[in-house]
Amino acid sequence: MTNANESFRLENGYPVIIGTTCASCDFAWFPPVEFGCERCGSYGKSLIESSFLLKGTLLSFADIMPGTDTSFLLSTIELENGATIRAILGCTTEMAIGDLTHGRIETIEDKPAIRFYGIGE
């Protein structure tokens, strides 16, 4: 299962996002970087496509436009490899900042999309 622009997929049964690892400084980037590493300036062959497991720690979350049709729970998540991403929480149970979280690929409005949940969910 992949999404339209291939930014995430299942790998060995685990959902991953496709980012970049810099071979020169080991930094992990999401979304993928194409033109050069923001940390060390390396480019070209130093930038390696890598898949990141959707496991991390919840740094923050906020209800965006609550009470409207378009409301959603936005979060900042630090993945295990150090990449920090913004993602939508799908959890129905209470979560707190600092909680461990994991992402799943789901079908939302007929399209694959990622939602993050608490560890028990």
Binding site: L59, A62, L74, S75, R86, I114
Partner: peptide, 20 residues
């Protein structure tokens, strides 16, 4: 840095900072 699939306005960014 997002996989949100919709544009996140500055207010969303600062709401995340506020909650943290």
């Amino acid at each position: 840095r997002d996989i949100v699939g919709k544009r996140t306005a500055p207010v969303a960014h600062f709401a995340l900072l506020a909650n943290r």
